[in-house]
Simulated scan of single mutants.
Amino acid sequence: VIANWWRQGMAGGALAHYATVDSWLEDYTEDLKKITVPVLVMHGEADQVVPFASSVPRAVNLLKNGSLKTYPGYPHG
């Protein structure tokens, strides 16, 4: 997991990573409602960065054709 996070971090620019933080505060409700293609949402149930219960089920329900695959004990990333 640590090596994968390092790989992901090195694949992007510093400014892009920094700018992403502000996007966490945005409400994507209307954007999710507009997506019509099938979407597979995969999420670790032990994610402490994006807690599962407070975000994932709601996001999947907003998708017209969304399905969810969870991973018990898995963290973010």
Rank of each mutant, 00 (worst) to 15 (best):
I35A: 06
V60Y: 12
N4Q: 10
H43N: 10
L62M: 15
P72N: 07
G66C: 05
H17T: 13
V41A: 12
L32K: 09
L32Y: 15
W24F: 14
M10Q: 04
H76V: 04
P38V: 01
G12S: 10
W5L: 13
F52R: 08
L62C: 13
T36S: 12
M10H: 07
W5Q: 07
N65R: 08
K69C: 01
G73Y: 01
F52D: 06
H76Y: 06
G66K: 03
D47E: 10
A16E: 13
E26M: 11
A53Y: 09
L40Y: 04
N65I: 00
G77K: 02
G77E: 04
Y74N: 03
Y71Q: 04
L15F: 04
Q48D: 14
E30C: 00
H17L: 14
D22C: 00
E45Y: 00
A46L: 09
H76W: 07
M10W: 08
H76S: 05
Q8H: 02
H17C: 10
P51R: 15
W6H: 04
P75A: 04
M42V: 15
G73W: 01
S67L: 00
V21G: 08
A16T: 02
A3G: 08
K69T: 02
I2A: 15
D22A: 13
L40K: 06
V56F: 10
N4K: 12
H76R: 07
D47Y: 08
I35F: 09
R58I: 14
G66L: 02
G9K: 03
V41K: 08
G9C: 08
P72M: 03
T36I: 00
E26W: 13
T20R: 12
A53F: 05
P51F: 07
L15W: 06
W24R: 12
V49K: 07
S55M: 15
G44E: 05
L63H: 05
S23F: 06
N4W: 09
V21Y: 07
T20H: 14
D31S: 11
M10R: 11
A11W: 01
K64D: 05
A11E: 03
R58Y: 15
L15Q: 14
